[in-house]
Nucleic acid binder design. Structure first.
Lengths: 209, 209
DNA sequence: GCATTATTCTAACTAATGTTAGACAGGTTA
DNA sequence: TAACCTGTCTAACATTAGTTAGAATAATGC
């Protein structure tokens, strides 16, 4: 009898081989990208043969899509959990600072899934890109809300565009994948500094501009 | 007799077929990435056959590397030109604002080369990545200097780290490739807003934090 | 017009890719 | 023991990749 619950034909338990395949593939996708990661590479990392992967996934595309979608959801969950731990009625800007740290944390600590998403998105088949955009939109909506709340609370400058602010935030955070090394500052320190720059400004106060 | 000058065996003129190949390839690399862009795709876009490309380039790698290196150099030149047009002794922060606009301009107006670089860097062969890093370092040094000058002039806040500021800048600017559409604000408007946020801060002045 | 050079094509080669069908071993159930 | 299911492997398939050698075409110089 299959170990999985009685609802599905294919194994979808999160503890066994399937999860290991996802983990290994996420790592490879993050490092090498979509097209350069072959099923034989993945199988080799698992100590199996390429054909065996089809017992768990219908195609390379399904495998990759599972990882990339989960990547966003993990970051989303990380941010959501961090927000839930915030006291009721906290300063909206504090909330954003916490969200930035949570996002960076999820991205860099065991963040192969999220990294795979960001790294592979541009080069993935088109239909898959469409579905992925929907998942991204959901996370984007979370940030819209975060920023919107700060706006309503009068905590944001009048001449700052909310969309532009969100784009700058995402850019600063996700771009860390391009350069962040093991010996770099921790996500906490980094998030602290990012918030400092983006919300208080890098210019010395009382400058002539 | 070859049309090119007498120094080289292979054509390296910038006006003919070779340049068209580079242009078409840059567009494809930007759209589809390194591994998903085949020499047959490139040849088809040129109206030629794959084998013919080898008359101009020794390998796919050389072709891609030429484009990616040139991509950075173009942005670099764009910023350099913009800086040269600045008046002597201009405010260092003004210079940075101008540099941001120039970078965005180069990235999005006929910016297939630079976009190809950013899009493909992570998935390119390792030795090539090493060489590319050197080119990137040169451009990075330009920004180090820009920021360093502002720092020395006392125009930057004491508790802002120069490296972090540079990373945030690069992230905000380069991440626009992930979302910028034709109907979005112009590079000038965008650069204006980015500078506004990053240097004056998104928070309303006189807030409680 | 002839020889030479520049440019492109043809046609193949090898290696690698995603994918599939069927065999095999091990354990489980009856 | 016999039947069955799970997980893996074998071995191949069609396709596509980068690359190459040599033929074919077009332009140029004398």
């Amino acid at each position: 009898m299959p170990r999985s619950a009685a609802k599905s034909e294919k194994p979808d338990n999160n503890d066994g081989t399937r999860r290991q395949i996802l983990d290994q593939t996420a790592k490879l996708l993050r490092m090498n990208g979509y097209a350069s990661t072959s099923l034989r590479d993945i199988a080799a990392a698992m100590g199996m043969k390429a054909g065996s992967l089809y017992y768990y996934f219908a195609s390379k595309e399904e495998l990759a899509e599972t990882i990339m979608a989960e990547g966003i959801e993990r970051v989303r969950d990380g941010v959501k959990k961090a927000m839930a731990a915030q006291p009721e009625g906290a300063d909206p800007l504090d909330n954003i600072a916490v969200a930035i740290k949570a996002h960076l944390q999820a991205l860099h600590v065991s963040g192969d899934y999220a990294s795979a998403n960001i790294r592979c998105f541009a080069h993935v088949p088109d239909e898959m890109k469409l579905r992925m955009r929907k998942v991204r939109k959901r996370y984007e909506a979370d940030w819209r809300k975060l920023i919107g709340t700060a706006r309503e609370a009068g905590r944001l400058a009048d001449d700052v565009d909310d969309d532009a602010l969100r784009y700058v935030l995402f850019g600063a955070m996700n771009w860390t994948l391009e350069w962040l090394r093991r010996d770099n500052p921790s996500p906490e320190q980094l998030g602290e500094m990012f918030f400092r720059i983006l919300f208080n400004g890098a210019a010395r106060a009382g400058g002539k501009s």
